[in-house]
């Protein structure tokens, strides 16, 4: 983000505010076109060399289960992407046709999305509340400090005994991960709101806490909160995979499942799925973020 915003502030010079404001998203395009062709060529060369070395190493090893080649992985990817299966929609108990890859991805999303959403909302709420209220901060800081270093996956014991290691248990673990990331970013964002802006708001007639939070604290903390959400979008995929290693269905389960069948090429294909899903969701979020927070320096 820092690279793009840097360009943004340089192009958004003080002389011509109108033009930069009307097209806040343009700076990223600008920085892309600024990217010299030599840079692209280096990128392509680096990728080519990586794939060539990988392919050569795989051929030297000679056993797919020890090291699948990029060609084998790509083949496995296509097979998974096209192999027909059905996906049972939970609650509705309706089976819809899907491919294996899509079905597994949907399984993962069934705990990833609820966990991310609930964990983020709760984390942001507590972060804002503690960042705002010194009393609440004092009261809860010992507890949050103590609980925070515990890796989300350690809570799997409660996921198992309370909920069972299905979608619910996996969502629980994901939610804990999302909670802490969002909690700390929201907390830091609210703490970082300058006293000056609060005083300005007071002199302009803001005289109650709710209005102050709504009109000054939250907007000022939004960049930090957005960073928390974006970080958790990525981190929660790590947690999804870890949770699924314990048996929840989805992409992560397929990675370990295929490996147990010595189909390592399929494992790597699903690893690539996670990477692709992350890149797409992170890119989409950055776009939204850049547009919504066009006011940032």
């Amino acid at each position: 983000m820092s690279v793009e915003t840097g360009t943004e502030s340089e192009t958004g010079a003080t002389t011509d505010p109108g033009s930069t404001h009307e097209s806040p998203g343009d700076s990223s395009i600008g920085s892309l076109s600024d990217l010299d062709t030599a840079g692209l060529a280096y990128g392509a060369a680096g990728t080519g060399i990586f794939l060539a070395v990988w392919q050569a190493a795989a051929m030297a090893v000679g056993r797919t289960y020890l090291l699948p080649s990029p060609v084998e992985v790509a083949t496995a990817f296509v097979v998974e992407l096209t192999a027909p299966t059905t996906f049972t929609v939970p609650f509705a108990e309706v089976s819809i046709p899907a491919t294996r890859l899509v079905a597994n991805l949907l399984q993962s999303l069934l705990h990833y999305l609820p966990g991310l959403a609930v964990g983020s909302v709760l984390g942001i709420s507590l972060g804002v509340a503690m960042g705002w209220s010194g009393r609440l901060d004092d009261a809860l800081t010992p507890v949050t400090r103590f609980l925070r270093p515990i890796p989300p996956l350690a809570w799997i014991v409660f996921a198992i005994v309370w909920i069972g290691i299905g979608h619910g248990g996996a969502a629980f673990i994901v939610g804990i991960g999302a909670f802490w990331i969002n909690f700390y970013n929201a907390y830091a964002g609210v703490e970082g709101v300058s006293t000056h802006l609060r005083e300005v708001a007071e002199t302009l007639g803001v005289d109650d806490d709710l209005t102050m939070i709504r009109k000054v604290i939250l907007p000022a903390a939004t960049p930090s909160i957005a960073t928390g959400v974006r970080t958790s979008i990525g981190q929660c995929w790590m947690i999804v995979v870890a949770a699924e290693l314990f048996g929840a269905p989805g992409v992560g389960f397929q990675i370990i499942n295929a490996a147990q069948n010595l189909a390592t090429d399929v494992s790597v294909a699903y690893m690539a799925v996670i990477s692709l899903v992350f890149l797409v969701s992170d890119g989409a979020f950055r776009r939204v973020e850049r547009r919504a927070l066009a006011w940032r320096d």
Partner: peptide, 17 residues
Amino acid sequence: PGTDRGMVFQEYGLFPW
């Protein structure tokens, strides 16, 4: 503080958003 006094600050204090 109150709106009967209009304040102008050295650091502007504009709401950046």
